[in-house]
Design a binder for these strands. Structure first.
Length: 421
DNA sequence: TCTGGGGTCCTAGGACCC
DNA sequence: TCTGGGGTCCTAGGACCC
């Protein structure tokens, strides 16, 4: 008996956030639209609408019949926002994800700026993932708009190398949601991920093992998921630009220059080898909240403001933990200074917690270990070493008395903030 | 014209124990 | 008194991804 050949799909929704917005605002179809800008973008849009059409309740986010003129343009945007997604029409102008909005405003001032609406995206994310698992149950979540799917044992999953099943999934998602996606099918996750980029948007690409040298080797190393800007730069320094050139190096040479583990992985990846399974369930390792300030804040001069933000972040993390049913025992902070340098500090507690007061107190201790001469642009709070609340609920793990005692100490609010800043 | 927010994984050094 | 490994935990930083 022989095992069926592995067929793994990578499915990537096309310009997901922007496409969801276009479902709600069809009048924007074909126009350059960028999503981002955080709270400010939302306030701008709502403020305009309240002035223009004061009779309606604009917090409802129902703008399907709103004239184009009422949508805010990128031109003149000031602030720290970045682009989360851009429509294909906007990408023509060279704007793209993670770009600062002020830069985007220069490249494409006429672009329409929409605020992000995660609740909507999560809603459509759940919808398309349910459609997929109804057809092919072995699916790995890779975020709101991406998944891996194991086609191997799905009836029809081998037909035309997976194209037939990919087409069925693509059509089912479109019929239900009106959204398009791109799919790559290959012998493993590494190649499937690359394949899903070959034909975008709304494409399907099939890669077979024997196409390694003809299809994969001419590609830039950067196309390998896991090779980022730094590794790419270093590879270039050694005259390695394509995956084929990477594959030609000796494993020992790669290990010598990139470390034992990374070197071995680079060699395997360049040869299209990847045995990782499609993982249908995973547990979070950490939960965090962070925020970039509207303006850089000084630890002494802006003490009150920072203290309030710090406390709010701790409360948010605690609420997230409680809502999701986790407790953790490693409390950490992250700071980013005005020169963009970041530092982290963390401390591991004896007992698990999801208590805002204890998190605040411990995070405060961490903060005391950081020199605060420079102004800050970002502050974050993280809780790691997570376990399910139920699994930690025995007396040896959570000491309720300790939690209550330390919580009351820290929740004095004003007093503890005084010490911290 | 500076660069969001939420994650994972890896490395490396020091403490501590056997 | 000095020496060596190995294992695990903790902490800090960094690369990378969506």
């Amino acid at each position: 008996m022989t095992l069926p050949a592995r067929r793994i799909a990578h499915l990537d929704m096309d310009a997901f956030y922007a496409s969801v917005e276009l479902l709600r605002y069809p009048q924007l179809k074909g126009l350059p639209v960028v999503i981002g800008g955080g709270r400010r973008a939302e306030d701008d849009l709502l403020a305009r609408l309240r002035v223009a059409l004061p009779e309606r309740d604009w917090t409802a986010h129902d703008l399907a019949d709103i004239p184009l003129d009422f949508f805010p343009r990128l031109k003149g945007y000031v602030g720290r926002g970045v682009i989360t997604t851009a429509t294909y029409a906007a990408r023509q102008f060279g704007v793209g994800s993670a770009m600062g909005l002020m830069k985007a405003a220069r490249l494409c001032p006429q672009a329409i700026l929409l605020p992000v609406d995660f609740e909507q995206y999560r809603h459509y994310s759940r919808r398309f993932k349910t459609i997929i698992t109804d057809i092919a149950p072995v699916m790995e979540d890779r975020g709101v708009d991406e998944v891996y799917i194991d086609f191997t044992n799905v009836p029809g999953g081998q037909r035309e190398g997976g194209r037939v099943l990919a087409r069925l999934i693509q059509k089912s998602i479109f019929d239900d949601t009106g959204l398009t996606c791109s799919v790559g099918v290959a012998p493993n996750k590494l190649l499937a991920k690359m394949a899903s980029e070959f034909d975008k948007p709304n494409g399907i690409s099939i890669v077979h093992e024997h196409q390694l040298t003809s299809v994969i080797w001419p590609l830039a190393c950067r196309k390998i998921n896991g090779i980022g800007p730094k590794a790419d730069e270093k590879l270039r320094g050694h005259g390695i630009e394509t995956i084929g050139q990477l594959a030609a190096r000796e494993p020992a040479w790669l290990q010598q220059h990139f470390g034992e583990k990374t070197g071995a992985w680079l060699f395997e990846a360049a040869h299209g080898r990847d045995e990782r399974a499609v993982v249908t369930h995973s547990e979070p390792v950490s939960i965090s909240r962070e925020t970039t300030f509207e303006r850089d804040l000084h630890a002494v001069r802006d003490k009150a403001e920072l203290g309030a933000i710090f406390t709010r972040l701790c409360q948010s993390v605690a609420a997230d933990l409680q809502r999701k049913g986790y407790v953790g025992r490693t409390i950490g902070i992250k700071l980013r200074f005005d020169d963009f340098q970041s530092v982290t500090r963390d401390q591991t507690l004896e007992h698990y917690t999801a208590d805002a007061g204890l998190i605040r107190q411990t995070a405060g201790q961490c903060l005391k270990r950081v020199p605060l001469q420079r102004r800050l642009r970002l502050l974050g709070v993280r809780v790691g070493s997570l376990v399910h609340t139920a699994d930690a609920a025995d007396a040896s793990s959570i000491d309720a008395g300790t939690v209550a005692r330390q919580a009351s100490k820290a929740s004095g609010g004003e007093a503890s903030e005084q010490q911290l800043f």
